[in-house]
């Protein structure tokens, strides 16, 4: 389902972001290459969600640049349609589950047969086939988030940003969501995800970016990070005594 050419790597060059002169993200340099999921950790207010939105292009940096270096990134349409994001609170259209799946596929100009096939395939992968005709807004929180993930997955994005996708879910729904995320990653999509659930980060992460006060204190392979983070802030965070 991938376009032949790649959008990645995604490179952030001294990206800053502020509101009303107050800097919230300070000179961040980052690169994202294809590979296992990257987890963005940090205390509340560290700027995790802002970082994802900057990468995804929902907000523009006040200084610095967000650059897509892949060959496919020359094509604005590939750039727009090659990435996707799922939010903490799923935003579903006031339509049926299936209509929610078909909507972005139609934006991508796919014909009706392909749209339907892709939508149903993705719904099956997240276990929502039986609910296809149900109005999306009456689903449970866990089902809504699975639908949001399926909707993003059906687009076959090269990179998928997940902002606390399981923050509001019970343990069972969280497990289902994690399993879907693992499957998406296995299908070749680069996952960049925030969470404040350390257990979840351990289960999913290939590497960890730790964010504190809008700065990256370290980026470390997951195993090393959880064995003993290099930065003092991350150390304190893992010990549960990071003072904000």
């Amino acid at each position: 389902m991938h376009a032949p050419a790649s959008l990645l790597p995604l490179v952030l060059e001294t990206v800053q972001y502020g509101i009303n002169g107050q800097a919230l993200i300070h000179g961040i340099d980052l690169e994202f290459h294809p590979g296992p999921p990257t987890l963005v950790l940090g205390p509340n207010g560290a700027g995790k969600s802002l970082l994802l939105r900057l990468c995804h292009g929902l907000i523009s940096p006040t200084a610095g640049r967000v650059i897509w270096h892949g060959l496919a990134a020359q094509n604005p349409e590939a750039l727009r349609f090659g990435q996707a994001m799922v939010f903490q609170k799923p935003v579903l259209l006031r339509r049926s589950v299936l209509a929610n799946m078909l909507f972005p596929l139609k934006l991508r100009g796919l014909n009706a047969g392909i749209r339907f096939a892709r939508a149903m395939e993705a719904l099956e992968r997240v276990g929502l086939t039986a609910l296809a005709q149900r109005p999306a807004r009456v689903l449970s929180g866990g089902e809504q988030q699975r639908l949001a993930l399926a909707r993003a997955w059906a687009l076959g994005p090269q990179i998928l940003f997940l902002d606390e996708p399981a923050a509001a879910l019970d343990p069972n729904a969280t497990r289902q969501v994690e399993s879907i995320i693992t499957d998406i990653a296995a299908s070749g999509t680069k996952i960049v995800m925030t969470t404040h659930d350390l257990g979840q980060a351990r289960r999913l992460a290939g590497d960890v970016i730790f964010l504190h006060h809008g700065r990256i204190t370290e980026r470390t392979p997951a195993g090393d990070f959880f064995a003993g983070p290099r930065s003092a802030a991350a150390q304190a965070f893992l010990n549960g005594d990071l003072v904000w």
Partner: peptide
């Protein structure tokens, strides 16, 4: 204001 981020994310 409810849909903005999601719709822009989907490419609208």
């Amino acid at each position: 204001s409810e849909y903005e981020e999601q719709l822009r994310s989907l490419g609208l």
